[in-house]
Computed example of a mutant assay.
Amino acid sequence: MAERGAGIRPRTLHREPDRAAALTCSCCERFVQAPLPSRPIERGRSGPGLLAHVLVGKYADHLPLCRHRRIFKREGLDIDRSTPADWVGKSTALLEPLVDAVGRHVLSAEAIFACAAAKAP
């Protein structure tokens, strides 16, 4: 079997529908609309995938938020300067219970081991 080379799939931003499906009954003409899908940030327009992308870029790849903005603008999404910072702040608030649970789990161990790369100065 021949080895395949490495490749990359370019990511694209896409807009998710803002409205839920709306239907009208043909008998009684009653209007029925499904509830909107939940969002991580209330009244926010960013989905969980976009928030995860920004958080990974900021914390794992050390990408400044201003660079995120330029990348989004190049892809056709022109957002306000403060928007990515708001996303990060609200996302960290959402993740706080998870951070607390991980901290409790780590601190409940008999011993805590650190890797060699995490030496204190």
Rank of each mutant, 00 (worst) to 15 (best):
V56R: 09
C28N: 08
R81W: 03
R43V: 00
R70N: 12
A52G: 09
K73G: 15
F31W: 14
R43G: 04
T12N: 06
A52F: 08
P40I: 04
P10R: 08
G76R: 03
L51P: 12
T24W: 05
G44W: 00
A60L: 15
K58H: 07
I8T: 14
H14C: 14
S46N: 08
G44C: 02
H53S: 15
G49K: 12
R81H: 12
E42K: 04
Y59H: 04
R11C: 07
Y59Q: 02
R43Q: 02
A34Y: 09
P10M: 05
L23S: 09
A52H: 10
R11A: 08
P40C: 10
P84E: 10
P10V: 02
T83G: 01
R9A: 12
L51W: 07
E16H: 09
D80P: 05
S46Q: 07
K58Y: 04
Q33K: 13
G47A: 07
A22E: 14
I8M: 10
D86M: 03
D86T: 04
L50Q: 07
H62T: 01
A20H: 00
H14E: 15
A20D: 00
H62F: 03
L65Y: 04
P10S: 05
C28Y: 05
L55D: 14
I41W: 01
F31H: 15
L23C: 12
A6I: 02
R11W: 05
R45Y: 08
L77W: 09
R74L: 06
P84D: 08
T24E: 13
S38Y: 01
H53D: 13
E29I: 10
H14Q: 15
R9D: 11
D86W: 00
A60W: 13
